[in-house]
């Protein structure tokens, strides 16, 4: 690990007054990447003990403060009852030890698991702008179908972010100048030609809360994750779905996919195909085909297209109670 200075702050104003430095809380991403010297911050501002840990999950409203630990949110009965997709995504993330340490804000800020990004010996535009992308024509089995290009095809690693996109969640971002709410789907940026810029967070700005509206759709939601082993592994493909049914018809639906996009990927075409349709397997299969619109498979990840399609069908079928 490279040398850094360390300061712990005990209040939000003190954190926001920090003129420079990298915010640090659970440390599960940062310490890992600092050991690899992928990240070499000069100063850590430890916000891990700020009192921003409240979890509110009424049927009407979800509000999770950014320093709530993943394990505590996953264990909340109100989250499981009113926003099941959130609890499921969290319980399928990482390990119990990491979920005890890692925060909600930190989870949304975690970096890609792309092996080229994680190795300082390899080229990576995200880590060293202009150094090239090893994955585009290299080992890209785990990489993105959507949102990438020759500069970067790294997937976004968070399961929680996928679940939250399916709930139309917003983030509260706070700086010394005040707070603003940003839809999570707009928080993340496509890599384009500058993959090192991953989100709209301004210098000194901090995620302070995650917000979503509740209702029948949020209450009938599900996260399905497909991976190389049964537990403690990142997604090859995952699907978050939220479904509102009325008289056997799909009144409204949200679909988002993980493991396939350079950011949590909203499956908008599949959603429109399904709205107003009967909640039947045939309708789900038809919509799932539309989830592949815009997919750009690479040399090693073509299997993800059919895997995504089938995972969408499986998720909707389980939610809709059909087989």
């Amino acid at each position: 690990m490279k040398l850094f200075t360390y300061d712990a702050v005990s209040s939000l104003p003190a954190a926001l007054a920090a003129r420079r430095g990298t915010f640090f809380a659970g440390g599960t991403t940062l310490v890992d990447l600092m050991k690899l010297e992928v990240l070499t911050p000069e100063r850590l501002v430890d916000i891990g003990s700020l009192p921003l840990t409240k979890i509110e999950a009424t049927p009407a409203r979800l509000r999770i403060e950014a320093l709530a630990r993943m394990a505590d949110v996953a264990a909340s009965h109100d989250v499981l009852r009113n926003y099941p997709v959130v609890a499921q995504a969290l319980l399928r993330s990482a390990s119990p030890q990491i979920r005890n340490m890692a925060t909600i804000g930190g989870n949304l800020m975690q970096r890609t698991r792309c092996s080229y990004f994680r190795s300082v010996a390899e080229p990576c535009n995200k880590r060293v702008p202009g150094s090239g992308c090893g994955a585009f024509e290299g080992d890209n089995r785990s990489h993105a179908l959507f949102g990438g290009g020759p500069a970067c095809v790294a997937t976004h690693a968070s399961d929680l972010a996928v679940a939250l996109v399916a709930l139309d969640a917003t983030l509260t971002l706070t700086s010394a100048k005040g707070s603003r709410d940003v839809p999570l789907a707009e928080f993340y940026l496509l890599p384009g030609s500058s993959p090192s810029t991953e989100n709209v967070l301004a210098p000194g700005e901090l995620i302070t809360a995650v917000n979503a509206t509740g209702g029948p759709r949020a209450a009938r939601s599900l996260y399905v994750k497909v991976r190389d082993r049964a537990s403690f592994e990142f997604a090859l493909v995952s699907v978050a779905a939220a479904l509102a049914l009325e008289g056997g018809m799909v009144k409204d639906v949200r679909l988002a996919a993980g493991g396939v996009g350079t950011k949590p990927w909203r499956l908008a075409a599949a959603e429109s195909a399904l709205r107003g349709q009967p909640a039947t397997l045939a309708a789900f299969e038809g919509a799932a085909k539309r989830s592949l619109e815009g997919a750009m498979p690479l040399s090693g990840n073509g299997f993800k297209t059919s895997l995504l399609e089938r995972t969408v069908v499986k998720t909707l079928a389980r939610l809709g109670g059909v087989s």
Partner: peptide, 18 residues
């Protein structure tokens, strides 16, 4: 794995200063 304040954590990812 050790327990910190009763919760299991990875000591290798925990900075002692925290």
């Amino acid at each position: 794995t050790v327990l910190v304040n009763g919760r299991r954590v990875n000591a290798c990812l925990t900075l002692a200063v925290t």
